[in-house]
Design a protein around this nucleic acid. Sequence first.
DNA 1: AGATTATTGTGAATTCTTTCACGAACTTTT
DNA 2: AAAAGTTCGTGAAAGAATTCACAATAATCT
Lengths: 217, 217
Amino acid sequence: MEKIPPRTVARLIIYRKILNSLIYEGVSHIFSRKLAEMAGCTPEQVRRDLMAIGYQGSTVSGYDVSELEYSIGYVMDDPEGVKIAIVGGGLLGRAILDYCYWRYPNFSTFLSFSNEKDISDKVYHGCKCYTMKQIEEVLEMETVDIVILAIESEHVQNLANRLVKSGVIGILNYTPIHLDLPSEVFVEDMDLMLAIDKAAFFVKHETHIKKKKKKKK
Amino acid sequence: MEKIPPRTVARLIIYRKILNSLIYEGVSHIFSRKLAEMAGCTPEQVRRDLMAIGYQGSTVSGYDVSELEYSIGYVMDDPEGVKIAIVGGGLLGRAILDYCYWRYPNFSTFLSFSNEKDISDKVYHGCKCYTMKQIEEVLEMETVDIVILAIESEHVQNLANRLVKSGVIGILNYTPIHLDLPSEVFVEDMDLMLAIDKAAFFVKHETHIKKKKKKKK
DNA sequence: AGATTATTGTGAATTCTTTCACGAACTTTT
DNA sequence: AAAAGTTCGTGAAAGAATTCACAATAATCT
């Protein structure tokens, strides 16, 4: 399979979420125009993106919702699933855990690490909780692919190094500290303040407004 | 001033955060190479980005940290500041509020709306808290530019419409529901699960790995 | 049964972004 | 004082992503 462009990947994930809710609602087919509208992009993008995964629709009824959902999953999901841990039992960590609890599509394991006494050693939403000291020990037993970092501590870089050494290959970094890690590790800095700053700029400069639709001839 | 490319805006915000911590540490000058390393991008990108805001460095000592920080602020900040409200007093809402409390650079007002009885009518980190019912009433008195949506409710679209009608022009949407709003409104969907899905894909497909540095001749 | 309309798939054009490559300015080394 | 090494700024090339525009197809209307 050809390499899928990153922007396409991001949108495919969105389409998939929409398709799943359409399945739930009992919708059987959808046109690129409608899907684009629901996803917040253009119909052309939808069609190009689906080209990338080789899914073909019909000019009559558009795309078969279930089939398409399956096709996206086929291309994107790893058959072994993805194992995830959350580090940090504060407000944010627990918020994310709650969030995941309600709708985790294809992630097999969840683990949680935290220093908070009342959280460690419990099972929360089916998710085993440990103390931070146990990280190495636990990751020795259970493989974890992605760690969600949601702590306030200063020693995040150190912690990240420990995680990578224990076999973690992806980090979602909710701390405001930029992490420097080997390039094989996927790191996404999710700094909440940066998102606000960005919104502030675009709102004030009106740079985000799309150009007008051009007239039909 | 020429329109600043969106990617550049995103990076400028990152540079600025770094520059502020450098100021705090007493560093007076920095080279594009170092700044790039700290920001996770290339020196060429740094130099191009700074071109976009018309800041000139020196070939000898690089960029003056304070001056550059000021220049970025001059281009990006609205002199009137940005007024922000958080809707939702659950774990996520409070996490974000805590987060903002520690480091809000140039946002003037914070308001918070929530249904939780024990949160409304309080002042939290200097942030006035109201019930959701008071939204129109409060927004009539105080302008709010950006709202951070951090609720679990189903009627998010409705709520968003109300907010926009009350003058809100930007929304950071932490709910999993895609919002359909007039194109003048800046909306960023921040669905936490999508971030995980994306990480899962890139981790498993190793698409994120940069190509090797090429040899010097 | 022909004209009209809607939709997909996709080459080609366009726009946006990154990277390359090198001149100019200055410092340090030999 | 010449050579070698930095670094910045930037034109130009390369690479990605989006958008345009239209052929192909099938349904519906007149």
